[in-house]
Design a protein around this nucleic acid. Sequence first.
RNA 1: GGGCGAUUAGCUCAGUUGGUAGAGCAACGCUUUUACACAGCGAAGGUCAGAGGUUCGAGUCCUCUAUCGCCCACCA
Length: 747
Amino acid sequence: MTHILWYITKMENNSIPEILTKSYNPTEHETRLYKMWEEAGYFNPDTVKNTGLVNESKDPFSIVLPPPNVTGILHMGHAMMITVEDIIVRYKRMQGHDTLWIPGTDHAAIATQSKVEKDIQKKEGKSRYDLGREELLRRVEQFAQESHDTIITQMKAMGASCDWSREAFTLDEKRTVAVRTVFKNMYEDGLIYRKNRIVNWDPKGQTTISDDEIVYEERESVLYTFKYSEDFPIAISTTRPETKIGDVAVAVHPEDERYQKYIGKEYNLNFCDLPISIKIIADDTVLKDFGTGALGVTPAHSIIDWEIADRHNLSNRPQVINEYAKIIAPEGHFLQNKKTTEARELVVSWLKEKGLLIGEERVKQNIGTAERTSGIIEPLPKLQWFIDVNKPIEKRGGKSLKELMREPIENDNIEMIPDYFTKTYFHWIDNLKDWCISRQIWYGHRIPVWYKKDSISELYVGVNPPENLELWEQDPDTLDTWFSSGLWTFSTLGWPEQTSDLKRYHPTNILETGYEILFFWVARMILMTQYAIGEIPFKTIYLHGTVRDGQGRKMSKSLGNGIDPIDIKDRYGADAGRMALIIGTAPGTDSKVSEDKIKGYKNFANKIWNITRFVLSSIEPVSIPNESNLNDDDKKVLGEWREQLSSITTHIEKYRLYMAGEELYHYIWHTFADKIIEESKDILKDENKRKSRSILLATILTETITTLHPFMPFVTEAIWENIDGQILLDNKKPLIITQWPTHTLPQ
RNA sequence: GGGCGAUUAGCUCAGUUGGUAGAGCAACGCUUUUACACAGCGAAGGUCAGAGGUUCGAGUCCUCUAUCGCCCACCA
């Protein structure tokens, strides 16, 4: 109560100059300031060059924004990415580098299409086949446009100083040219081929997916042990009896004494009232100890079995499951067109009936599901397009794509932060198989291959459609979304055109992204860039961790625990959100966001606001720089700040933003405010010291505000606008294009 | 099964090349002093998971153990 009375009294007696309100209110300034920067063109390096900030002796600096998927709104992970990149970009710009940050969004093919399909199914009960290709695409594009607009609004709200005039989309016209050009080149170099091979088929999404898009889930299932028939000498074990009508062999370990005598023999059997032919083969990948030590080989429905069939030249690979996960069997057969789960029971009861079932055992099994649709993956042989990762490439010195991916990391041409991720990177490359790039969905880059209608074997691959188009038919499939995002660093700069941007800004300086897409995306960017232009895409990879909620859970739509960055901005200001996201967050490690933390940095914004109020209302008017008029004591104090500044600058140069931010925070609050300002209250009363101290406070204030600008762009710019009355600066410009302070010690 | 990481104050986490342990929040005492109560001053809180080793010196480097987490593989 007494507190409230005191507070009211204080408000009435307020004698602080009116230029700055008593407390900082972010909403009063943020939107206005962003608009000011954007309209003045300060995000565009071509404009910044005219301000005199750019030092031509310094190298250009460039970043491309990892394009967010147009599948909805940005979450805190994106917010962290944008913050880190914006801090770096603002810093480099202030350092006088010709700085470019290209924004953009990703069409995210399968993710976007399945999102829209789900919505349509839910609201209208229609499938994509009910709508047809054209109508579905129209709907997806509309959704993508809306998502895009939301995303851009969010990015602007956070203060992202990227050059909107160069914005790109992975599916726009220019990027399409880049995609088709790379596809054509790869095809002509023999790296892209079409082959019937076993792929991960998602029966729910009706498309193939890559190995990386599979999520394994542990489930309980039954391991059945049985014989195909009475005349067959070996029992086998399987969790999928329904696939066994597609078996062509039984594989045993070459040194397994139990089965030695059968190796090489062939049996014609009747299994589930169907004729099957089984050859006994020896393969050393078979485990003697698992089940009966004998593996029924089903080439068409198991990746491992397909590979075994390859090794043993088994050409008969009957497909017994179709694209809808239903059994293919002769008309009238009891398994015909049955779902796999149903068929499993039918096969088991057939085995029981015939007395062939030997055992059942409950086992835990990891089952592959599709990341986007959560459909259970059904391995199927399909005619698909692949990229060969092992073939030597003539124009790249006979190196394979695998080698091109490995080399720059190995030779330290690309630095990875944190560096321990290089180990997982190499491990991934070592296990990499040919990349299946075709997808049976409609939204995305359609494969630039046309087949002659009257002659199946004749095909055309090109950037533009063939002449006499009516005689040709385009491949109905689209490309894996990572194909186009793999080109991102150079497609955004105009490639295949040899633009001045491309010459000036490529390779980019840093790629800042989440570690969870190291394989999906980062590796593929290195692959594509090394192949297409023979350059690295970026010099540094900065991997941030996952932003989790207060309880350490991943933020997701299904949990409903996501925080909208806009909401943070409204309640605490974008600056506070930015600081909370980067301080105390080392690269590569996950972080938790709590409102308390954000609140702490809202208080910090208010603190520097009031530091400014104090300085402006207490010092005598000074012009700076004016270090020669400092007394020895004040030179020493300034010298300490300059040492701190030097440390902060080094941290930023080495991308240790969390360290830079923390040191700056600590200096401003606990040294500048708590010590220097407190002691200044007395010192300023001393006429002999007043002038010097005024210069000191003005100098430290302007330099700390400048240094803080990349971290908290809004509050610092708002302060900057208001310091003129007492502090006169030569050639004052908006803070965003003000030069970074030098850390030379005062003489 | 293979790999990677983590273990530091009540909670959430920093700690750059080895040199006297830090922040935010929470909690405690005092202060309402014209920059800020979104504050100030002060105090409190940690054998840095455990054990061993290297070193003049270890949170930091090495070995082992325990617990937790993540990634990759997929035993059919």
